[in-house]
Structure formats: structure tokens, C-alpha cells
């Protein structure tokens, strides 16, 4: 199954055997493979969802590649694949996750799935926000008595509750440092250029 809608994973790994193994494990995704940091940056575009980046690359290091990715306009999730336990460094460097080498099939797939899941977080939070903002608009417009008999309000309250459950599921475990920082990075990457239209949406409602 390799249809064009499958999420795209870019593997940056200089050992062909290792890269092939990863590709086999991830065969239900659209996998691309490169061997150096330079070619990774050349391949990078909006279509890429997740990058699996080896820490020890010939030439440009994994950390340098990541710094380049983060300073550019492309927002994708990057997991470092590393033989040494990187501790906190990876969070400060800007990695979203790390996988210790050699990873097993399950570990690698779980990491990719978690990162793909997180890619939907900003959109879900955005929708949740617009529902909450709409309720806030109604609440500042109408008295409690009038809200109680308002069907739209009752539906809104219900939708907010079910949406919150979805958002919280997508967020994952916020006790984890890397997931927490990754979630915040996700909303910041996309925060430019999303505001104007939403603002208009609830202004209309209150006028």
C-alpha cells in the first residue's frame, strides 16, 4: 500500500542496510531515503511529515541538519536516531523525539505514529478554540436565562466537551518533557497567518 495520500517519512541514514530495514518496517508510508544531511535538506519540502535523522552522519551532522530545518519555513517533525542516550539535549536542540539505535520495529513505528498524530494537534486545537471563543461570545451577549433555552448554545457546550476529549487524546502524555515541548512547538510553527479569519468568524456572531 503506497498510495499518494500516505504520510511521507524521510529517512536520513548513511548505512544502506539500516535504511532499508527502516523502509521495510514503514512500508505503509510513503518513504523517501537519503544518505547525507545535504541531500536531506535538498529533499525537504511541505510534503514531508516526519524526518528520521541519524545523529552520526558523514559531513553535516544530524544536529546541523536539524538547525537548518528549524530555521527554515518547512515545519515537520524530526526524530533523532542515536546510539547514545541523548538525555535532555535533544529537547534543547529542537528534536521532537529520539529513538535509540538500533531501534526495533515497534519502537520505530510507534515514534512515527506519535509524531504523525501530533501533526494534527494544531488543527484540532484551532477548532476547539473557535468553539470556545464562540461560546464566550454568546455568554457575553446573552443572560444565563436566555442561554439556557438556546439550542445552539446547548449544542455548542456538548461539542466543546467532545472536542476537548479529542484534543487531549491527541496531545498525548503532557508529563513527558519531549511531548510537552513538541506540542508547544507544533502550535508555534503554525501560528503565523492563522488569526485574521477566525477573528472575523466570531465577530459576526455577536453583531
Amino acid at each position: 500500500m503506497n498510495d499518494s495520500d500516505a504520510p511521507v517519512v524521510l529517512i536520513v541514514e548513511d548505512e544502506p542496510d539500516v535504511a532499508e530495514t527502516y523502509e521495510r518496517w514503514l512500508q505503509d508510508y510513503d518513504v523517501r531515503r537519503v544518505e547525507t544531511g545535504d541531500s536531506a535538506l535538498a529533499q525537504l519540502d511541505e510534503t514531508i511529515d516526519v524526518v528520521l535523522l541519524d545523529r552520526m552522519l558523514p559531513g553535516m551532522s544530524g544536529a546541523d541538519v536539524l538547525a537548518e530545518i528549524r530555521s527554515g519555513a518547512i515545519d515537520c517533525r524530526v526524530a533523532m536516531v542515536t546510539a547514545v542516550d541523548p538525555s535532555f539535549d535533544i529537547i534543547e536542540m529542537g528534536f521532537d523525539e529520539y529513538v535509540t539505535k538500533p531501534p526495533d520495529r515497534e519502537q520505530l513505528r510507534e515514534t512515527v505514529e506519535r509524531l504523525l498524530h501530533r501533526a494534527t494537534l494544531n488543527g484540532e486545537l484551532q477548532e476547539y478554540y473557535s468553539l470556545v471563543a464562540r461560546r464566550a461570545a454568546l455568554e457575553s451577549e446573552f443572560t444565563e436565562d436566555r442561554l439556557e433555552s438556546n439550542d445552539e448554545y446547548a449544542q455548542l457546550v456538548e461539542r466543546i466537551e467532545s472536542h476537548q476529549a479529542d484534543v487531549d487524546e491527541t496531545m498525548g502524555d503532557m508529563a513527558s518533557d519531549s511531548e510537552f515541548v513538541g506540542a508547544v512547538r507544533e502550535i508555534m510553527d503554525d501560528s503565523s497567518g492563522t488569526d485574521a479569519s477566525d477573528g472575523d468568524e466570531f465577530t459576526d456572531l455577536t453583531e
Binding site: 484551532q126 478554540y129 496531545m171 503532557m174 510537552f180 508547544v184 502550535i187 501560528s191 488569526d195 477566525d198
Partner: peptide, 9 residues
Amino acid sequence: ETVFKFLHI
């Protein structure tokens, strides 16, 4: 919107 999302997280 951004502040709201951050506060949620």
C-alpha cells in the same frame, strides 16, 4: 488563539 492553545497545553 495562540495563547489559548498554549494555556491548554
